[in-house]
Nucleic acid binder design. Structure first.
Lengths: 220, 220
DNA sequence: GTCTATAGTCCGATAGAC
DNA sequence: GTCTATCGGACTATAGAC
């Protein structure tokens, strides 16, 4: 079953204080405003005044609640990875058959990213490279997701095959899926096709077919 | 044969006045400085002072030669697409066999992007979305490359197959290749593998294998 | 906790000397 | 054609009233 909640709702349900009660509404408003603007314009191109204006709060609320503009980015990263871990921790790991397990993993990754696509684009493309703290955190978390949740476990059974370039087939699969979300705005400009619900009913299995046929034949 | 010239040399050989003689060296220096900084930090995060400083010229030279900071971006786009057209206009279009032709097209695209990877990343990820002029130009030029040079011609022979989702298999191929270049800095952080000359001796054929096996089986 | 006002810095662009 | 000096504005962050 596909979770059709939007990013904004997801933030709302996750930004809570430690006790579990809802925190002040202003923090949520700033986060949602920032996510939408960072997604659309990029982190550097978005000003704190603009974020505050769209959230209908004063600029100083950003520094009060997040410390700095960078603090918003850190919180976005925390939320994104905690959500990805939640969405990816599902049924496919128990499946014994390699092909079925990989297919489930692909679908699980696509669905999880679909629910967090704005934050995903921000984190993949808009972390300033001089922010080593966040760059390193992103690398660590991506590694965990890709290797622990998707990749290593799923590819058990190929380990004895000779000459397999995991450094190619791994990024190739990530590349198909990641670029779909990172370049989503460009696809309609180029192909004149729509990415709607109908599309996503077909897409995950179609991608899994192509990839699995290709990789399985290559590995035989 | 792979052209091993770097971006900086490529700019040097292409920034010429209409008569064909070399223009002033300063314009080249600014372009190369800007390409390296835009590639590394992004367009918005890079200031004109920084570009000028790295090029060892004065800030006002940017406005004199390019009109504005945006003017540099426009010139980068012009150069990139003219180079892509040059590099892609090669032998594979004449090949009759579908599989061989597609394989050659994939290798041609990878090699062309490899020679222009800095400009490619800038153009794909760092054009401000409110700059509709450049956004539209990019869409038009990408369409030309993907459909005229790579895609439509190469997929003749599939046209009568039923139920083929060109809107999926097209972006899937572009996605594998594009994301390799767009996320190049991330790959070593995640996979602990190196992207060196040895890698590129294997990579194009490996990708072509996986994709062709997958798509051909899917289409049968 | 939330606001207004502003400090202090950096931005892109340009005037004007040579 | 290239430079130095500087304008006017936008930026992030913060001080201080309530």
């Amino acid at each position: 079953m596909i979770d059709t909640r939007k990013n904004s709702d997801i933030i709302k349900s996750n930004v809570r204080s430690k006790g579990g009660e809802n925190i002040t509404n202003i923090k949520e408003k700033i986060l949602n405003s920032a996510i939408n603007l960072f997604y659309k314009k990029g982190f550097e191109a978005t000003g704190v005044r603009e974020i505050a204006k769209k959230a209908k709060v004063s600029t100083s609320m950003i520094n009060y609640h997040f410390g700095s503009k960078n603090g918003i980015l850190e919180e976005i990263m925390e939320i994104f990875f905690s959500q990805m871990n939640e969405y990816l921790d599902k049924e496919h790991v128990k499946e014994k058959d390699l092909e079925i397990r990989l297919r489930l993993a692909i679908k699980s990754l696509i669905n999880a990213l679909r629910k967090n696509e704005k934050m995903f684009k921000i984190i993949m493309l808009h972390i300033p490279e001089e922010n080593t703290k966040l760059v390193n955190l992103r690398a660590k978390k991506l590694k965990e997701i890709i290797f622990k949740k998707i990749w290593i476990d799923d590819f058990k059974g190929f380990e004895n095959s000779e000459g397999i370039r995991y450094d190619i087939i791994g990024p190739a699969l990530s590349g198909i899926i990641f670029s779909h979300f990172l370049l989503k705005d460009l696809i309609p400009q180029i192909t004149n096709s729509n990415i709607d619900n109908e599309f996503y009913e077909v897409y995950p299995d179609y991608i899994a077919d192509i990839y699995l046929y290709g990789v399985l034949k290559k590995l035989k």
